[in-house]
Amino acid sequence: MRETTLTRVLTSGPVLKVIPAVVFLGLWEVGANWKDSLLIPNASTTIRSTFELVQRGETWEAMWISNQSLLLGFGMAVLTGIPSGLLMGRVRAIEKMADVWMNVLVVLPMAMLMPVIIMSLGFDLRARSLVVLLFAYPMVAVNARAGVREVPTDLIEMSRSFGAGEAQLWRKILLPAAAPAIWTGLRVGLGRAITGMILAELLLVSVGIGRLLQLYKGTFQPGNTYAIVAIVVAESLVLMAVVRRLEHRLVPWANDDAFSRT
């Protein structure tokens, strides 16, 4: 194709990235207006509602309430997941025993266990945090385990032959080598944790963002409903971006096909 200025601008990075968003918003606007349903807001209404909601104190209060469970639950997941994952990766016997249950945990739709959690713990922050923990733990642990398992045997044997004890082995070889995988686990686990946070509020008890969502849905405020969705997605993107940034800084030698462990 002959390179005109127009094609060059069109195929430049920033412009290219914006095109799908523009096309999508355009189609949405036209589609929603044409369909004219009470429940489906068009793009412009959604955008306006989002700006409005972001300015309301109520929204931020709700975000804080919701995120408390995220903080506690994900924090616990990291504190339990990484050590247990590392242990499973290092000690074959433990791994073999735990393997079946880890597979089940990864595949289990945690959402179904929620009612069991209500019955045992009630409706409070503890219960919601537990949900977040359950959602995030498997991914954190499994990736930590994989990280340790995939450390090349020669590295370990090499350090043994230089007289390294177990503690040194961990500090100098196993942890650095497993670090990229651990970070992948953190990243994916965080995504799951956010899902847990939302689900807990939609299924378990109406507080925070979940409550707002139900409220706007129930009172037929489609613009605000979609706006909440957008806000949650935005928070998730921001959190993920933060983790990725940290990841690049702390484990710059990691490569990007961590996707296959998602």
Binding site: K17, P20, I40, G191, I198, L213, Y226, V229, V233, S236
Partner: peptide, 28 residues
């Protein structure tokens, strides 16, 4: 060209909590 264009959206939607879109699909 197509990859550059779609990649950020694919990644964003893959990592966002899909469950939160339930009300959207319900409304449609």
């Amino acid at each position: 060209v197509i990859e550059k264009m779609l990649d950020p959206y694919v990644y964003a939607l893959m990592t966002a909590p899909t469950v939160v879109f339930t009300p959207v699909y319900f409304s449609i």
